[in-house]
Nucleic acid binder design. Structure first.
Lengths: 357, 357
DNA sequence: TTGTAAGCGTTATCAA
DNA sequence: TTGATAACGCTTACAA
């Protein structure tokens, strides 16, 4: 747009003397022989100017590789056009993908993205929030461990900074969030399993006390089993930091009464579960079926391919950003968006083994 | 540190009247009955002040949930303590992980991270760079498709903004970068393959014209084969946007002379390759072995587990940031750091099948 | 010890 | 059409 003409025409920095300080509007004004007000007007297209003036200004700006400082601009405008993003970890593909969605939508809307991660560490989390606040982000898209018990969210409420949760599905529904219906989604998984003949269905889940998502998904699992008149299978709560599950799962997988299907509350857990089952000498899905939750892309590529409940991660991020942006002025309170989920079939989820076991 | 006292003591916003505008240093000064200079000094620990003054100021700041605006601060200091990060895609785990490393190191050093991604789209790339430049980042850590042919890097050179490449290994070695020795690393892969008895070794690679890494890795593969006195196997260049490889690979995998091992120039490609082989009815590693390059974590979890050349992605990011930070004042030109690589064994790479084929 | 005031890079108001 | 100037939130001489 306005900036197209800014690349230097001669390809070099400027007229001989190296310009080591970044050019300011004053430098441009001086070089063009006009006032800074004129430079501002020309470059922003506001107000009129003679064609010649415009030409002079553009040339000067271009020669100096001038790019208006958003920081000066922000100070004046009292708005930064920047949003903060806070996720537990960038290395979990499901978060990486939602960040990609946020980033994309933000770029589209002319917003910058300041990123921070917590590694599930409350201290890091609050430091990150402080940093984002100081940077005067206009709002936040974030995923926290437990949206019902989060000091960070309390802080945000206190200072009235708009935010939208992604993935989290708080009980206090007044906290704006974008998620899938975790209970319904989990039910869908269990129903698929029962349809395939499974009768003993276990669950591998993140710690309930630390994760609202894990709790919801567990509730859906439980409800679906109850509806089907089946007893709940074993539930194994695991820490996200130690994904070597073989020794944790072993006790539940001995004997004829072992579960024939396991529902993992997220995909990383599902992969770890499959790994553990193989290490224990069990075949997936011939002995035990596994279904995950998230829909990470790599799941399609592995063997057996991962059956999983797909959340639209990219859309989750993009939608959360849009909510935030459109809600900047208005009230975000109570806004909740449920995105549709789908069940992606995969080789890891097959029919229940025949009775012979 | 200084900010510890800022959380409101009574847990509420303030004294009754809601304060909807974010508090500024002037608000604090007014409330404490001192000048803004005093507030600044107390909060920054510079200069002395009476204990009572300090107390008054701290209390006022805390009551108002005052957080100094980095944007005002930056404007004054002419430095932003912000770095930009530009990657092709957040959803490739190898980039996500290096971003995590950057983010971590940056947070440690008190820097904020502004993130942008290109999706391998030059237009997005240059827009992203413009945005970062306008935001006055102090430097950039970035990964580009081809560091020897990058308009973005030319722009950065022009404006003399410090940057450090991650993963890229440019021919023009004067561009600061952190990488592994891609040629040596690829040789290590091929040597392992020949040690396992493989004699027909093919390569699946990203487009050479678009990727300096792909070129280097191909060169290493070629050199190692030459050293071993083996003829180069088939080379399949693939587009990163279409990872359904079965139809691409099929022609090379028929007949007794098919390769017994395939070297994929990155892990996503390796996963897609394994998938394609299975779709073609071939077993990995019994019929064909596969080794990747990157060392993404999910590789460990899948079955067969992925053999791969591990780059220290997190360290790559962290190191690149450190280079940038320590080089801010000095000269980044020609600085190149080679990080050590390791070969991670995995089930996807086994001994060559016996002659009988 | 504390306050006054200038200045950082913009935009916007008001005159000229 | 253009220019002088105030203002944004902060830090930092310098003065009191």
């Amino acid at each position: 747009m306005v900036r197209d003409g800014m690349r230097t025409t001669d390809g070099r920095v400027t007229d001989g003397r190296a310009m080591d300080r970044v050019a300011t509007i004053r430098d441009v004004a001086a070089r063009a022989g006009v006032s800074i007000a004129t430079v501002s007007r020309v470059l922003n297209g506001s107000g009129n100017a003679t064609p010649e003036t415009m030409e002079k200004v553009r040339a000067a700006a271009s020669d100096l590789s001038f790019r208006p400082s958003t920081i000066g601009r922000n100070l004046k405008a009292a708005r930064t056009r920047t949003v903060g993003v806070l996720v537990p970890s960038l290395t979990n593909p499901v978060f990486a993908e939602s960040v990609a969605g946020i980033q994309e939508a933000a770029a589209e809307a002319g917003y910058s993205v300041l990123i921070a991660s917590t590694d599930y560490d409350p201290a890091k989390e609050s430091r990150a929030i402080e940093g984002l606040l100081s940077n005067r982000v206009e709002g936040l898209v974030l995923t926290v461990a437990d949206a019902d018990r989060s000091g960070s969210l309390d802080t945000l409420d206190e200072v009235r900074l708009p935010y939208v949760l992604a993935y989290n599905q708080p009980d206090r529904a007044l906290r704006a969030h974008v998620s899938v219906d975790n209970v319904a989604a989990s039910r869908a998984v269990v129903e698929r399993m029962t349809a395939l003949g499974h009768r003993r269905i276990g669950m591998i889940a993140g710690r309930f006390r630390q994760s609202d998502r894990s709790r919801r998904r567990h509730a859906g699992w439980q409800a679906a089993l109850a509806d089907a008149g089946l007893p709940p299978g074993p539930v194994v709560e695991v820490d996200f930091n130690d994904l070597r599950l073989a020794h944790r799962l072993a006790p539940y997988l001995e004997g004829p009464e072992r579960p024939t299907a396991l529902f993992a509350s997220n995909d990383m857990l599902a992969l770890a579960t499959i790994r553990a089952l193989r290490d224990l000498g069990l075949s997936v899905p011939d002995d035990v079926s596994v279904c995950g939750f998230d829909g990470i892309e790599v799941g399609r590529l592995m063997s057996p391919s991962l059956a999983t409940l797909v959340q639209p991660a990219r859309a989750m991020g993009a939608t959360a950003f849009e909510c935030l942006r459109t809600g900047f002025s208005g009230d975000l309170q109570g806004r909740a968006v449920m995105l549709p989920f789908t069940l992606r079939p995969g080789e890891s989820l097959g029919p229940a083994p025949s009775k012979s076991t």
